[in-house]
Design a protein around this nucleic acid. Structure first.
Lengths: 150, 150
DNA sequence: CTTTGTGCAAACGATTTGCAGGATG
DNA sequence: CATCCTGCAAATCGTTTGCACAAAG
């Protein structure tokens, strides 16, 4: 975990009058150390792999606390599967249709979409692009492709 | 329901050797008659409002059948909430941060995003833009806005 | 008369809640 | 010592499954 990230959780939680507990720190550190977007179950197993660190209910409440202060966000791409992401900088996602692998797409790939056409009806604050298709390994594994709708 | 839509369910299900049952027809007709993106619960209540039409399990299985043949798709924008949409033409979604109202955005708003930059890593088949913000009524109701990240 | 679909109830899995005990400020 | 957090277990919610009966080809 980088210094910046360690500072982030301490300063951000304290600024809200919330405690920096070992469990919250561990959940946040785990998210930062991963490049995927784990589920609660994956975080729980990972944390308790060597010795007990946290209970299931505490992982849920830690994630809620981290989300409340804006350190973590949800990623919803599959039905019934809620994933978590410590990268709160705006970015997009690719999701493999075959293996459900999720890959971050940098914001610079689709920056500055023009939302002014909605200004009369809605107030647009942010957007996100989700790309679907086949990841590199599924594409190489002869998973049949579909015609692009793009 | 338009003629085209009525034909859609009959022809599409039959083409797959599946039966056009009253329950499947009712679920599809209900989806077509709405402009929102209802949950299973909302569809079930709506169908059985006047007299019993379908059970909960049958709504689930009907939706799965309709989804399997491509007449219906899921919309996943909130955690733990799975919504359904009979509009299968590619389009985007706006989701109100305050009241969770969902509004369709026509495909023409963001057509032809350039995905060629991923061609070496992944095979992109489709994409969808999700816009977050405040809907007209929440914006007028003095819900505090957030700085745009756009 | 064989196949497919419905409906009920039970099972299931993910998440939330209540509450007692522990840690922190 | 007052508050916040953890951990366990029970409750809850949405969804799926097993099975007997009904409907359709």
């Amino acid at each position: 975990m980088t210094l910046k990230s360690a500072n982030a959780i301490v300063q951000t939680l304290k600024a809200q009058g919330m405690r920096v507990t070992p469990q919250r720190y561990a959940v946040y550190a785990n998210l930062l150390s991963r490049q995927d977007h784990p589920t609660v179950e994956q975080i729980l197993v990972d944390l308790n792999r060597e010795f007990p660190v946290s209970s299931q209910a505490t992982v849920y409440s830690s994630l809620q606390a981290l989300r409340d202060v804006g350190l973590v966000r949800e990623v919803l791409l599959e039905e019934g599967v809620c994933r978590y992401d410590a990268n709160i900088d705006p970015h997009h996602h690719f999701c493999c249709r075959h293996c459900d692998k999720i890959i971050d797409i940098p914001w610079s790939a689709f920056p500055g979409l023009d939302l002014s056409q909605f200004s009369s009806h809605i107030y647009a604050e942010s957007y996100e692009v989700t790309v679907q298709g086949l990841c590199e390994s599924c594409n190489e594994s002869d998973v049949p492709t579909r015609p692009s709708t793009i």
